[in-house]
Every structure is written in C-alpha cells, then in structure tokens.
Design a protein around this nucleic acid. Structure first.
Length: 303
DNA sequence: CGCATTTGACCGGCGC
DNA sequence: GCGCCGGTCAAATGCG
C-alpha cells in the first residue's frame, strides 16, 4: 500500500494504530488497523483487548447492547460530518460494533428475548454436547453421530474493523477455519460487474475447551477492510502459538479474499471520507457517492 | 503424518 | 407451508 493509499483511507483526525498493525498482520507492510472496537478503554489495543482476562463481551455491555446486533440501536449512520471533518468522536480507536454482519442482523427485541430464554436451555444442551463429544473423542465410529437438532447458543458478539490485506488477522489465538459462505447480507451480494459473492469465513478457536468463534469478512464499504466478528469468550489464558509460523493464522492475501477487482477499483475512491465512531458505527462524511453505492448501509432499507 | 483448509451438503430459523 | 439464508458439519484435499 502506498502512502497515497494511506492518505486515502486515513484522515488526519482518524486515528489508527501502527501497533495494532504489526500485531494484526506481521507481514503487512503498511496496512493499518483502521479501527478496532474499543468498548473498554480507548487505550487498549486490539490485541490487549482480546487477551484480556476480563474479556467478556457479555460484560462489556449489557446483552441488549452487545448481543447480536444490539448495537444497532447506536449503529445508525450519521450522515456526514464533512470529510475530514472529522467529528470522529472520542475514542480514537474507533470501532464498528455492529458491522455488516451485525447490522444486517436487525434482530428485533423479541428475537433477542427468545435467544435469552433459550440460552439456559441451550447451555445445558451445550454442556451435554461437549460432554458427549469428549466421551466420543476421536472414536467417531458412527457415521453421523452429531445431533444437529440442537439449537445454537448465541453468544454476545462484537466486531472489529481492520484495514488489512489479509483476511485472517493474527490476534494471538489459534483459529481453525470451519466454513466459508457466500453471504447476501452485503450491500454487494453480487458485484455489478462480475458474479463474485461477498464471502464470509467462519473460524473457531482451536482450544478444545474454548468455544469462541469468529467470522471474517471483507467490509462491504471497502474490500481492504476486514470485519472480524467475535462471538464468545476465550476460556484459556495462554493463546497457543501458531504452529510453525503465522502461516496458519494468516492466510495469504489472495487466499480467500472475497472482493473482486471491480469492487476494489470502484469503491476505494469513495471511502476517503470514511469515518468510524465507536458507538455510532459508521459515519460517512460527504460521501454522496458512497451512499449511492452503499444504500443499504447508509439506510437500512435496500432498494 | 498430523493439522489446517476447502467445499458441498445439511440443518434450523425466519420471513413471506 | 415453503423457500431463502446464515451457520455448521465432515469428507476430501493440501501443506509443512
């Protein structure tokens, strides 16, 4: 990335941390964390945040606020504050609590209530599941012993946005990819000029006792931005180092990048006024073009 | 050889 | 009730 590119994305008043950079992607020459969610302390880095013992999304904010797009209430896009203007509030390391994934959720309160009610039941089921899983261990003798009927537990989630060339950012923990899907949630379900789908990757912490999951997707606004959504809480203190190197943690830039050249070319110039607010989500400054291109983001409704 | 990734199939929730 | 879609599983494959 060139200096010009940096200028393109980072305004004077938009804070980004080089430290996060190096942490998040060792091989990234000049990539930058465009913003990391910072619910606790504006000083704490992405890395610190993740490793924090007290790291508990459920405690960072009430479930109402954190769980499943709850932040939506504060995720309204404020129409603009002038490009450079920067009213980028407060916390420098601003974040996008409710990224495309979250925002798209748009779960209503009833649904969250449901989830809440189910939570206890599901937790029991989950424990049982884990138990049986441990029992079965490697002896998966049965072809499909998995009981799929059980409902999933919805952990509080939160998202980080990071400008990175790699999809999977190194956060100190080991992750195992267990799925990848093309999502339609994106404002660009399909590129106008090609048929590439906006894809999302699903990762799980490799620690057997840790149930933390995360999803990684390219920002719908800027393919150069990686939106990482964490779900759950690490139950272990020492993140296991990647085997060998960071290779297992960070896939090559081209490995599973979901954006197409068109996106990249088309939208980059429009993101120069891209701002973030920790509590208010995105802020677009004088980016009419961007709003035209991202109607679903600037407004909830999509044509 | 062991672990990670890929990828198609499958499942469940939700909206219409 | 049906279809869509997000999320997960698991066999196949790749890689160190």
């Amino acid at each position: 990335m060139s200096a010009d590119d940096r200028d393109l994305y980072f305004h004077d008043d938009f804070f980004y941390a080089e430290r996060d950079l190096s942490l998040l992607s060792g091989e990234m020459p000049s990539g930058a964390a465009i913003g990391t969610l910072q619910p606790l302390s504006p000083i704490m880095s992405f890395d610190d945040y993740l490793k924090l013992d007290a790291f508990d999304p459920g405690e960072l904010a009430s479930p109402e606020l954190v769980a499943d797009g709850a932040v939506n209430s504060t995720n309204n896009l404020t129409p603009s504050t002038g490009c450079g203007g920067g009213t980028s509030p407060a916390s420098p390391r601003s974040s996008v609590p409710s990224s495309s994934t979250e925002a798209a959720g748009e779960e209503d309160t009833s649904r969250r209530k449901k989830d809440h009610l189910k939570q206890e039941k599901e937790e029991i089921e989950k424990d049982q599941k884990l138990q049986s899983k441990a029992d079965n261990d490697k002896s998966k003798t049965l072809s499909k012993p998995k009981k799929r009927g059980e409902k999933r537990r919805r952990e509080p989630r939160f998202a980080f946005m990071t400008k990175s060339e790699v999809d999977h950012l190194e956060d100190g923990y080991r992750w195992r990819k267990y799925g990848q899907k093309a999502v339609k949630n994106s404002p660009f379900p399909r590129c106008l000029y090609c048929t590439d789908l906006h894809q999302i990757s699903y990762y799980r912490c490799t620690s057997q006792t840790c149930l933390v999951k995360k999803t990684v997707e390219r920002s719908s606004q800027d393919p150069a931005i990686v939106v990482t959504t964490y779900e759950g809480k690490h139950t272990h203190h020492s993140p296991a180092p990647a085997r060998g190197s960071t290779q297992s943690l960070a896939s090559p830039p081209t490995a599973s990048t979901s954006f197409c050249h068109h996106h990249h070319l088309m939208h980059q110039p429009n993101l120069q006024c891209f701002l973030q607010s920790p509590l208010q989500g995105f802020q677009f400054s004088g980016c009419d073009l961007l709003q035209d291109i991202l109607p679903s983001f600037t407004q909830k409704t999509q044509p």
